[in-house]
């Protein structure tokens, strides 16, 4: 089973971060939240692997409970 990657994995992290914020540029907060929600769903579909998604949910929630792998 694949493990969630929690070490740096984006080539050109600053470029990515700038793109991310540029996508939000000019939006009001509600639209930005909606964009973020869509983005999570798009990326989740790309990952596909339920085990990885489950680890990602826990990581983002700072849920330190041991994963049962």
């Amino acid at each position: 089973m694949a493990d969630l990657i929690l070490t740096p994995n984006i080539d050109g992290a600053d470029d990515f971060y700038a793109d991310l914020l540029d996508t939000h540029d000019g939006m009001d907060t509600a639209d930005s939240h909606a964009l973020n929600a869509r983005l999570v769903l798009v990326l989740a579909n790309h990952i596909g692997d339920r085990a990885v998604l489950s680890q990602a949910l826990k990581a983002a929630a700072f849920d330190q409970k041991e994963d049962t792998q």
């Binding site: 990657i5 929690l6 070490t7 740096p8 994995n9 984006i10 992290a13 600053d14 971060y17 991310l20 914020l21 939000h24 540029d25 939006m27 907060t29 930005s32 939240h33 973020n36 990581a59 983002a60 700072f62």
Partner: peptide, 27 residues
């Protein structure tokens, strides 16, 4: 410069403490 960019910024900082992957994003 916006509420959302602050949210991302603070999220990066919170994640950076726990996970190595977010550290390159701290600027």
């Amino acid at each position: 410069k916006s509420e959302i960019s602050r949210l991302f910024r603070d999220s990066v900082l919170n994640l950076a403490e726990a996970y190595e992957f977010a550290r390159p994003l701290v600027n």
